[in-house]
């Protein structure tokens, strides 16, 4: 079952690539059938990815080392890709705006592509990760990261499609609002992720906050997005600046996720 799950994940990676290309065609060539196909493929791929994650979970139980598939970088990347696809598809359902897919779905593809370069074998859980808080912490953090990822995709879309030239247009205002709304979703979930992480740290290490680089970088990310939410109340920070802000914020997210583990040492080092 582990092998099958891995094979599905390889297929999922290239299906997200294909969906990205279809969304791009939809955006550039402006033919609706590409958009419809892209959506269809994305939903099917998302379903397959969900299945693969569940199979991996089941497989770990069959191996007698059962744990939720959130225990290392490979598993977290697969889950990150899944949450990116989930949040994008929800936005597509609400807004019916498939062009966003040309910017959002490539993120889901890239996360999977990175995962494919890593060892996919299922390993037992190390003592530090044996906690019920693992699931709550990982789910909230990664949904938050994905909210920010989609907001960055929307930010790129805002800049690339030249919305800044007509910031008062309906499309520009919609994108502006979507960037803000996805940041709000990401911010609430990141907060929940930091809180569940604190509760866990308090029960595992005896301290809810120890200024470990991962914790500090999650706080830095939180502060940057807190500033972004406050910029809503300042004149002149909508539109283009908000779009750039979403990119800076997501850069912090990426450093919190990858940079800390690759470049800095700390308590979260098992995630590499």
């Amino acid at each position: 079952m582990e092998a099958l799950s891995n094979q599905i994940l390889v297929a999922v990676t290239f299906a997200y690539l294909a969906a990205s290309v279809l969304y791009l065609c939809h955006w550039v060539i402006k033919v609706n059938v590409f958009g419809t196909l892209a959506s269809l493929l994305s939903w099917v791929t998302f379903a397959a990815q969900t299945t693969a994650i569940i199979m991996r979970w089941v497989a770990s139980h069959e191996m007698g080392i059962g744990h939720a598939p959130f225990s290392n970088l490979f598993e977290s990347l697969v889950f990150f890709s899944w949450t990116l696809a989930l949040i994008y598809l929800i936005i597509e359902l609400i807004t019916k705006l498939r062009i966003i897919g040309a910017f959002a779905v490539p993120l889901a593809f890239l996360a999977m592509l990175y995962a494919l370069t890593l060892d996919p074998s299922i390993k037992p859980l190390m003592p530090a990760l044996k906690s019920n808080w693992l699931i709550a912490h990982v789910i909230t953090c990664f949904l938050g990261y994905s909210g920010f990822g989609i907001s960055a995709a929307l930010g790129i879309m805002y800049l690339v499609t030249g919305q800044a030239r007509e910031p008062g247009s309906k499309r520009a205002l919609l994108l502006d609002d979507l960037i803000y709304q996805t940041v709000v979703v990401g911010f609430i979930l990141l907060t929940a992720g930091i809180v569940t992480g604190s509760i866990w740290a308090n029960s595992a290490w005896g301290t809810y906050w120890s200024w470990d680089p991962k914790e500090t970088w999650s706080l830095i990310t939180w502060l940057v997005y807190a500033a972004m939410l406050h910029s809503r109340f300042m004149r002149g920070w909508q539109g283009r600046r908000l779009a750039y802000f979403s990119l800076v914020g997501f850069a912090c997210v990426l450093f919190t996720y990858f940079g800390v583990n690759l470049l800095l040492s700390g308590l979260h080092s098992y995630a590499t």
Partner: peptide
Amino acid sequence: KLSFSLLLIMALTSIAGT
């Protein structure tokens, strides 16, 4: 504006300790 600046200053300076 002060909140906005302080949040960003705290974010920037926090980097040093990491």
